[in-house]
Design a protein around this nucleic acid. Sequence first.
DNA 1: ATTCCTTATCGCAAATGTACGATTGGTAGA
DNA 2: TCTACCAATCGTACATTTGCGATAAGGAAT
Lengths: 101, 101
Amino acid sequence: MDRALKNINYKEETKELAVFAKALAHPTRIAILKHLDNQTCCFTGDLVEVFPLAQSTISQHLKELKNAGLIQGELKPPKIRYCINQQNWNKAKLLFERFFV
Amino acid sequence: MDRALKNINYKEETKELAVFAKALAHPTRIAILKHLDNQTCCFTGDLVEVFPLAQSTISQHLKELKNAGLIQGELKPPKIRYCINQQNWNKAKLLFERFFV
DNA sequence: ATTCCTTATCGCAAATGTACGATTGGTAGA
DNA sequence: TCTACCAATCGTACATTTGCGATAAGGAAT
């Protein structure tokens, strides 16, 4: 295993920024975040209606955003309410600011 | 062709942001940009010495950064001098700022 | 025209990303 | 306990990304 994402010792900040950037590297995920930010929060089902994508696809994008730490889910049976994770959002904001001189 | 990057009509701003984010979605490219920013400019060969990656790999990353518009190359025979594209850099900076509330 | 140095591109292999439909899982209420 | 609803996960297919070595391409100087 020495291909694809070779292990180089980058600074922690660099790696974190790359993770956040990767989460934003797809227009659907950016649109989801914008939507979440406007609505404060929303349910998965709402997004499935807003975007012309399968429920599984939306769910996958949400998973990636969650893995990157940008959103968090809250059980609100039988739905799940997703919100921006404000703490990590601020962290990402800071990292991007620091990066762009 | 209805897989991978399905054609949805996202706002221009959303798509542009995704392109910039994608360019930053790899730690090597972030590190290259940081290096460029510190040194103002540098040659491909310098980067090949700084990073433990093949010359072709570095060249590929440079190509992606160039395609995203974040850097530009200037002929300085027999080398090529890469610099930040300040105009697009500012554009990206603005888009990220606008995105992060 | 030829040679030399640097960088881009090609061809390949493996990993990851993106999308779908189908299935499973988890919670609240009947 | 059973059912119904919603969302996550599985399995699949294809595209893209990431890495390498090898080769081609470009410009300057001889």
